[in-house]
């Protein structure tokens, strides 16, 4: 029993990180920021519109929410499709009650398959964030670089062409990246990326080969998928955790400057008939708090950038 000697060698044991994607900095070292109208918390609602193909490959892994049973898994295929038809409308209705604009993370395949959704998003003034091609087209360490380049370009070009929007943000399918993903995002003119939840505030990331992009806080811990599906907490407990997050961030905002609350929503989860009532309760509560700024990802990015 012995391990190769490299297992006890640490060539990257150094100040900061063992990668060059971003610099190390602790929370109290950040420059305080202020939000419009003196708001304490910028709240951004990020809704995901995903296409799960019936022949979704399992390599190198299956994106969460993907097919489960042997082919053809109509059960999960149609359940996910329900979100893109019915669930999303319920979420929009809930947001409309408070005139909240959403940031919509969209697979380009969804835009191609359902032009209605693109039209509706533009009418509402929602922002489109590129969510990759579809949930079969993962980005992952060790993948072919040319394939990844094509995936990023296809997704951003298609969404830009079909929506007419600038499309400045990116969220990878399953929030999975290779070590080269940022390089392709920069090459395609993307301004921010939502995969890296390393911080409660935006921070600059370095693309391999040059260029920078901003990481936007988008909390996997607070997503409806994590709390309701993975953790199996009930809807009241979901609302309570969003409230607790808001309350704690508000206290911090008093000392350290403006904070960001991300509300990741999946339409086939939060847009269900028995569940949307709680989404409404949560949004009602947030809207009744003092010092809330409902904004899109780009609006938060621009406000933050101006103060750096």
């Amino acid at each position: 029993m012995t391990l190769p000697k490299e297992y006890l060698e640490y060539p990257l044991r150094r100040y900061g990180y063992d990668h060059d994607l971003y610099d190390w900095a602790m929370m109290p070292q950040r420059k305080p920021v202020t939000w419009p109208n003196g708001a304490k918390i910028a709240v951004w609602v990020a809704t995901e519109l995903e296409f799960f193909a019936l022949d979704q490959p399992a390599k190198p892994f299956k994106a969460p929410g993907g097919m489960v049973t042997p082919y053809p898994d109509l059960r999960h295929f149609t359940t996910r499709d329900y979100g893109n038809r019915v669930g999303i409308q319920r979420i929009w209705d809930a947001l409309d009650r408070h005139k909240i604009k959403s940031s919509v993370v969209m697979n380009s395949k969804v835009a191609e398959r359902y032009p209605y959704l693109v039209k509706k998003i533009n009418e509402r003034g929602d922002e489109i964030i590129a969510g990759g091609v579809d949930m079969s087209s993962l980005h992952y360490g060790g993948m072919d670089d040319a394939v990844e380049a094509t995936q990023v370009k296809t997704a951003t070009d298609t969404l830009r062409k079909l929506s007419g929007q600038k499309v400045r943000g990116w969220l990878s399918p399953a929030k999975s990246e290779s070590f080269n993903t940022l390089k392709h995002l920069v090459a395609n003119g993307l301004d921010y990326v939502c995969d890296w939840s390393s911080d409660d505030m935006p921070f600059e990331m370095r693309a391999p080969g040059g260029g920078t992009i901003i990481a936007m806080p988008h909390s996997p811990e607070l997503s409806d998928r994590k709390i309701i599906i993975d953790n199996k907490h009930n809807e009241d407990e979901y609302v309570e955790q969003i409230q607790d997050q808001f309350n704690w961030l508000s206290k911090e905002a008093d000392r350290y400057g403006g904070r960001i609350l991300s509300v990741p929503l999946v339409p086939y989860i939060s847009g269900l008939h028995f569940r949307v009532k709680y989404l409404n309760q949560m949004l009602d509560w947030l809207a009744s708090q003092k010092g809330v700024w409902f904004a899109t990802g780009s609006e938060i990015l621009d406000a933050w950038k101006k103060q750096q």
């Binding site: 109290p28 190198p60 929030k175 939840s197 390393s198």
Partner: peptide, 24 residues
Amino acid sequence: WARPHPDVVPLATRDHGNRVGHWR
């Protein structure tokens, strides 16, 4: 890690602990 490297979600979550959570 469960996914190929970098396994962004758990890696970033752990980093959040050092950048943000530790102070709290």
